[in-house]
Nucleic acid binder design. Sequence first.
DNA 1: GCTTTAGCTAGGCAATCTGTATAGTGGGGC
DNA 2: GCCCCACTATACAGATTGCCTAGCTAAAGC
Lengths: 155, 155
Amino acid sequence: MSEMYAVDATDRKILGQLDEDGRMPVAMIAHNLGLARGTVQARLDRMQAADVFRPHSSRVKPAAFGRPVAAMVQVELDQHLIQEAIGALASIPEVLECFAPAGDTDLLLRVVARDPDDLYRVSEEIRLCPGIMRTSTSLFLRQVIPYRVTGLLAE
Amino acid sequence: MSEMYAVDATDRKILGQLDEDGRMPVAMIAHNLGLARGTVQARLDRMQAADVFRPHSSRVKPAAFGRPVAAMVQVELDQHLIQEAIGALASIPEVLECFAPAGDTDLLLRVVARDPDDLYRVSEEIRLCPGIMRTSTSLFLRQVIPYRVTGLLAE
DNA sequence: GCTTTAGCTAGGCAATCTGTATAGTGGGGC
DNA sequence: GCCCCACTATACAGATTGCCTAGCTAAAGC
């Protein structure tokens, strides 16, 4: 895994400003932070180029796509078919994310669905992927702390 | 949980354009989609107002904050102290997200850290939160499918 | 059938913002 | 001491935004 560009204190302050208003003009950010406009602009460009950001759409809450139901699916798979499994899973829109954890389960999927019934359909689709041997789905009753990086921003 | 504004096909197309270029001007989006500028502007404003978006900073990959290590922490807690526990957990920057799953575990935390050693420190902090009785941490060796909503966009 | 409402188109305007470039400054590394 | 890099300060043209008007269409309500 390649080393990723690490944002510094100034970058974090800039990002903090954008958090307050995602459309805040560069000049305003610079003014609020006591920086020159060029500096802010250069920082933003650098972060962009350094692949610090996820796609814009990742900001959209899944619920806004009509997928208010979230769940975690643990997958046990045939070790010979890992790549095939991942490829197939990646083609399921409701699979938002996939991790390979250390330990008993081979893959951990973050999935969403329209409703509990739809979740069943999605888990069926997952089960049908090549190499998938067993799955175990656990429904998320609630998102207690919504995704945030704010704390890391403040440091 | 209140019903959330659901993005429609047009909204999704607009978001798709922004995915290709997060700084694409509104006029360009409109042109690409064969819409009037005013329409695109109105849609974006509406989505903004409808709280469809997460904070801007949520786009920043945790690795860029110097937290390349990710893990999941299962928490079992004293049911009388749920609120206290959540409050304390929320004040830990490395806890990016927290779910309440149906089943044996009470809370599922998504955490990041600087390195394995730092992860230990974070899990210590979690253990020290009020109401936390037992924790079980599983390290993510790899993020096989990075977070994305692209599939839902395309529908 | 008629009216109302909501959303879209098309156009225009002023103020603002961006992209880009230049020159000068200060600190850090060698 | 010298070089390099990041930041400041400033400038300018062109593009973009925010806001507004007016007309059109389709769906909904009465």
